[in-house]
Design a protein around this nucleic acid. Structure first.
Length: 586
DNA sequence: TGCGGCTATTG
DNA sequence: CACAATAGCCGCAG
């Protein structure tokens, strides 16, 4: 039974009371559609129009603690931009990516796939001006219904037709609610056991919260000391050029440090690898490519190699992380902001733009806590082999995780040096077959048969194009190799991809569960400012540092337990309190 | 203007 | 240069 309650929330408690009266309780799905000065809410028992903005939703969240249903990253951005920070959600796009794989997860696609419709022929706004008879027939019916007679969403609703109208906003929220429930049912149907259904559900919840976290990471940014940044850049690439002419001159001067070894007017472009290669050949250095690691060993052959490598380093900083980068991505508030994606790429890792994930180590001293604050920095130790132990259920590898350094017991068991053991474990997870890992890899086979079988099964699925699911339930679709010139090489590549994605993907799921657990428990004034695959950086008031260190450790234990209850696998984290990201760990 | 190749950086 | 990613510049095709 649907109840419609027009509410003008002059006080947030009125809205909370309305929700309570409608039977919305902790953890219940509550869809929200944020329009223009109007918000639509939809729960199992109520449809509520909120006249006005979203500013009261934080208070409602704290009081009722529902699981908010959101469509996508755009919904998250709209809420965060309005200052709303929700505790949890059901993120339809995140759930879609986990359930079905792939990256695209817009409302129309998520809706179509969950209704057994072909998303490739779904109607879109672009088609409306060239309506074919078929789509016109499909689009008939009541335009006030977001769902067409043919089952697809109406493109104009997807496009935001509902934003200005309260009744339409609640209808759109109701559509999201229907889809979320359908996704939840599909997840339970796809899970082979109750344990997996619980685990996959926990993963969707964590992935959803990670979407909220990404919205906050985008809004909050990473604290940067602009004075230190300028100083670092001045030392590395020189002072900021005053105009374009000065910039050109500085570039020519830098090029000269390498070109001085050549006769004038040689026409070599240092930014063109083919030119660099022929330049080196002229000096008697013949290389198949000019990558730094290859030139490294040839430093003594000719002075130009040394100068070239130095030029590369400076040019790289100047072009990618120079003054232009600083101007573009660091705000006047000293925060470095980039775009964040909660689940990107092959295995569902978090990704970030603006150099946040590949900032050169030499520039990290610019990342500094603000006055009265410190960073709590935490990174997981040896996460991938520990994750392999958990997901494969290998008892011997699991026992090895009891040690702080997992590679020591592995080395003892294989009867090899620690360094060899480490290479062997990594080679097994990455699918390396060549190189020095061969002998130790055979040792791995007899010492850890369960883990090795898990990896071999993943590789076999990849090679034959069978899709997989990670430990947390994320579907890994195998890309087509039909067009590949060398079918066997392509199949082997997909085998390595699958083998690695099962481990890296599961590690990403555990990491996100940790990150969102920390986010949920963090005190007011504490911000998660960076997530880097196995590392968390928190910006905290100095007085809260000690408590936050405990929180990060407890959060890892809590997340690991929720992620793999009873696996017995131990996860470890290095945690330190620092003023700068570059500071040594304690 | 878009795309593949090369290069560098990170986990 | 095993696995994953972002990003810049160059040459080339359209």
């Amino acid at each position: 039974m649907t109840v419609v309650l027009p509410v003008t929330p002059t006080h947030p408690s009125r809205l909370g009371a309305a929700l309570e009266a409608a039977g919305v309780e902790r953890g219940a799905l509550l869809a929200v559609a944020v329009g223009d000065r109007v918000v639509g809410l939809a729960s199992a028992g109520a449809r509520i129009v909120v006249q006005g903005g979203v500013e009261h939703l934080s208070a409602v969240d704290a009081a009722v603690h529902p699981r908010w249903v959101l469509w996508d990253a755009g919904s998250v951005r709209a809420l965060v931009a309005a200052g709303v920070r929700l505790a949890t959600c059901w993120h339809i796009a995140a759930a879609h990516r986990l359930l079905h794989g792939g990256w695209r997860a817009d409302p129309q696609r998520a809706w179509a796939v969950e209704h057994g419709l072909d998303h490739r022929i779904a109607p879109s706004m672009g088609q409306l001006d060239l309506l074919s008879t078929a789509t016109a027939a499909g689009a008939a019916g009541d335009p006030a219904d977001p769902v067409q007679p043919d089952g697809y969403l109406r493109p104009e609703w997807v496009d935001g037709r509902w934003r200005a109208d309260g009744t339409m906003a609640v209808t759109w929220a109701g559509t999201a609610l229907d889809l979320a429930r359908r996704q939840r049912a599909a997840l339970e149907a796809a899970a082979p056991s109750d344990a997996e259904a619980r685990r996959w559900s926990a993963t969707v919840h964590a992935e959803s919260a990670a979407e909220l976290l990404c919205g906050e990471l985008e809004a909050d940014g990473l604290p940067v000391d602009l004075a230190i940044a300028a100083e670092l850049l001045r030392d590395m690439i020189g002072a900021r050029p005053v105009d374009d002419a000065a910039a050109t001159a500085a570039r020519a001067e830098l090029d000269g440090t390498v070109l001085r070894h050549l006769p004038p007017g040689s026409g070599i472009d240092l930014r063109n690898p083919a030119d660099v290669r022929s330049m080196l050949r002229r000096m008697g250095i013949d290389v198949p490519d000019t990558r730094a690691w290859r030139l490294e060993t040839l430093r003594g052959d000719h002075a130009i190699v040394d100068d070239l490598l130095r030029w590369r380093k400076v040019d790289r900083i100047a072009s990618t992380f120079g003054y232009g980068w600083l101007d573009q991505h660091v705000g006047t508030d000293g925060r470095l902001r980039g775009e964040w994606a909660a689940s990107d790429g092959a295995a569902g890792r978090m990704t970030a733009g603006a150099g946040l994930h590949n900032l050169p180590a030499e520039l990290r001293p610019m990342v500094r806590a603000e006055h009265g604050h410190v960073f709590v920095r935490a990174d997981l130790g040896q996460i991938e082999p520990r994750v392999l132990a958990a997901v494969s259920g290998d008892p011997t590898l699991g026992a090895a995780t009891a040690e702080d350094d997992l590679y020591l017991p592995v080395a003892r068991r294989l009867g090899v040096e620690r360094s060899v053991a480490k290479v062997a474990v990594l080679a097994a997870m990455y699918g390396q077959t060549s190189g020095t890992a061969g002998q130790a890899l055979r040792g791995m086979q007899s010492a850890y048969p369960t883990a090795m079988k898990y990896l071999a099964d993943a590789a076999a699925a990849g090679e034959t194009g069978r899709p997989l699911r990670t430990f947390g339930g994320r579907r890994l679709r195998m890309y087509s190799i039909d067009g590949a010139a060398d079918q066997r090489a392509a199949a082997a590549g997909r085998g390595r991809y699958a083998r690695n994605a099962m481990v890296q993907g599961a590690a990403a799921e555990l990491f996100k569960m940790w990150a969102v657990t920390v986010r949920a428990r963090a005190a007011r004034g504490t911000q998660v400012v960076l997530c880097l695959h196995d590392e968390l950086l928190l910006h905290v008031p100095s007085a809260a540092a000690a408590d936050t260190v405990d929180l990060v450790r407890d959060g890892l234990a809590e997340a690991a337990h929720r992620w793999s209850p009873g696996s017995g696998v131990r996860f470890v984290a290095d945690v330190s309190v620092v003023d700068s990201w570059a500071d040594a760990k304690d």
